[in-house]
Design a protein around this nucleic acid. Sequence first.
RNA 1: GGACGGGUGGCAGAGCGGUUGAAUGCACCGGUCUUGAAAACCGGCAGACGUGAAAGCGUCUCGUGGGUUCAAAUCCCACCCCGUCCGCCA
Length: 427
Amino acid sequence: MLDRRFVTDNINLVAENCRLRGASVDVGKFAELDLLRRKLQLDIDRLNQEAGRVSKSIGKVSEDEREPLKREGRRLREEASVLQAKQAEVLEESDKILRSIPNLTHSEAPHGGEDDAAEVRRGTSPIPSFAFNPRDHVELGENLKLFDFEAGSRVAGHGFYFLTNDGVLLELALQKYAIDLLMQEGFTIMTTPDVARDSILEGTGFMPRGPETQIYSISNSDLSLIATAEITLGGAMSEKVFNSDELPVKLCGISHCFRTEAGAHGRATRGLYRVHQFTKVEMFTFTAPDQSDAMHQQLLELECKIFDGLGIPYRVVDTATGDLGGPAYRKYDLEAWMPGRGEAGEWGEVTSTSNCTDYQARRLAIRFRNPNEKGTQFVHTLNGTAVAISRAIVAILENYQQEDGSVKVPEALVSWMGKTTMTVSHG
RNA sequence: GGACGGGUGGCAGAGCGGUUGAAUGCACCGGUCUUGAAAACCGGCAGACGUGAAAGCGUCUCGUGGGUUCAAAUCCCACCCCGUCCGCCA
């Protein structure tokens, strides 16, 4: 959420930003409503002030002098409550608009839609060339008995799966690999709840329970399954006021992620690429405003380090304005090379990192205080994927496959896996 | 799930219907004193919103939301959270 005052003071700028991001929002209407809200506030304040004066005077006066003053007090409060109800309506309507206004945008972010993302760099690992026809991860994984989609859909429906045998070891190895690295980088590691209150989802910029929601909700409760630990990690500090010397705070959370993927039918849905549940190791940081750009670069560096360490080829793209979603001010995606995708391999998103500036912090009320300065400021929040297990597995299987259908274990995972190759002979 | 107890400023902790946005202590900041520090003493110290060029002024906020009343931190209701005991349980 943007600051309402900022929006009314910068209508044109905000409207132009909405246009760039492909969000159809009536910014003018918002400004109009907010002006009305302010005017009503002024009237309400005046009435309250008068009513308060009357109330205080009653206490100082003898019993039989009180009745006329009580009547006056009643009248004033009634008048105020009428205006208050009206203001509440105005506030609700304007808030609805305000919440649909996306964050401001970094000036260097490329303009356009999904295909306009700008490639900014490549990883250290070269794209593999195979002397044979590379298989896709589904074929590889089924041969190696790494997962069981049939059992998954029997139990929970299409899009769910069991990891089995080396598939399980791979998941655990990737988790351990990632958290070891992040612990060294000063992150506090944590496992998080896999559910959160709707208010926390909303504060983070997710919209549960709408007609097009990506979120599973639990009926008869205000809880939803989380789509990412970004929700719980951000929510963990809601209402908190940090001291400036505590920042930056760097958290690393392991959680399951649940996504309905409504409307995604037919879009690269094969296998593990787009599933309803997966495990993810997520980075989340809170910084002072002047540190967030640098922190964003650091998170990107870490994501690169993790995938370079796994020996997976990738490219980094600077996401275009129309594809940023609501909260992100700027976003980088890591797209791993996936030899089994499409005709002759394609890039597929494996991680992303966003600087959400104060957009989430404002709704979650996460602030910081500078000693010797009056008041508080909102922190900036940033998030980045360390490893989304399911997609990392896709990338590993397809890049490390060998002609006989076995898959080499990336060097960095060998010690956790206890083997150098995954072969059919398992079990 | 049942029975109690409780949620007040950065922390601890009073207040239990009327000038209380809130005593007191600690912490913190400024000052006096001191060669310096400590101690002592004096002063300051919540957030949001609105208004104003500013100083300031105003409104709101004592877990959240509703209710009673001229007036609520204080009374009533619902919900959330935290303790303790009991039950259940990985």
